[in-house]
Design a binder for these strands. Structure first.
Length: 209
DNA sequence: ATCCCGAGGG
DNA sequence: CCCTCTGGAT
């Protein structure tokens, strides 16, 4: 694994390659981002973007979503997959928001992770993108790309989050996660396109493959 | 066929 | 640690 200084340098170079890193996550409220992030699990941006307008028109806040009926909600989110479990999560999440937090999205990791359907990755997305709290979401892309580059060395998402947040200043956490995710989607895919990679000369995976 | 901008449950 | 939930992309 790389030294902290080398890690920072590699990730800085990579961040400069993706100036558009967080433009996809612009939602009107933290509630909307939370809902959209839950829907995005194992789904595509296109799928999420297709369902969110009608979904937020029908359920603009936690109070309305808390009173939703599965038969109404499920068809609205069908295109994102896992629609039954997601509908259950969304309804329970909204009810918990109303009962525990007055309908507002809480600003702490501990409270967020207590919400049904919200795990550490989702919580970090909402913290970093909507609540102004530093967070470094680790999904499968961040996991794979970090290990290939050698800026982390673990299959445990929490260990990778700890390594990166320890080495990077908090103001870089969210942008770095976004960057690693985009790089993982576009270039450093499970089947990587190393010829298009701007940091391949610094990449442990490229060197050894 | 296989994999995914996950999380809950056994 | 394993499985399941679903549609869509590759």
């Amino acid at each position: 694994m790389r030294s902290p200084a080398t890690t920072r340098a590699i990730l800085k170079t990579l961040r400069a390659q993706y100036p558009d890193a967080d433009t996809e996550l612009n939602y009107a409220t933290p509630f909307e981002l939370l809902v959209a992030t839950i829907l995005s699990a194992q789904s595509t941006d296109a799928g999420v973007n297709r369902v969110t307008p009608s979904l937020f028109k029908r359920y603009p806040d936690a109070a309305s979503l808390a009173k939703a009926k599965a038969a109404d909600l499920e068809p609205l989110i069908h295109a994102t997959g896992f629609f039954r479990s997601k509908a259950r999560s969304l309804m329970g999440m909204a009810q918990a928001l109303v009962e525990r937090h007055g309908g507002k999205v809480p600003k702490s990791m501990e409270a967020l992770v207590e919400l049904p359907g919200v795990g550490r990755k989702t919580a970090n997305v909402v913290l970093g993108h909507a609540l102004g709290v530093p967070g470094l979401p680790v999904d499968r892309h961040v996991l794979r790309v970090s290990n290939r580059l050698g800026v982390a060395a673990s299959d445990d998402p929490v260990a990778v989050e700890q390594r990166l947040t320890k080495v990077l200043p908090p103001e870089d956490w969210t942008k770095t996660s976004d960057t690693l995710i985009l790089h993982g989607r576009r270039i450093c895919k499970p089947n990587p396109v190393c010829e298009m990679c701007s940091v391949r000369d610094e990449c442990e995976f490229y060197r050894k493959r």
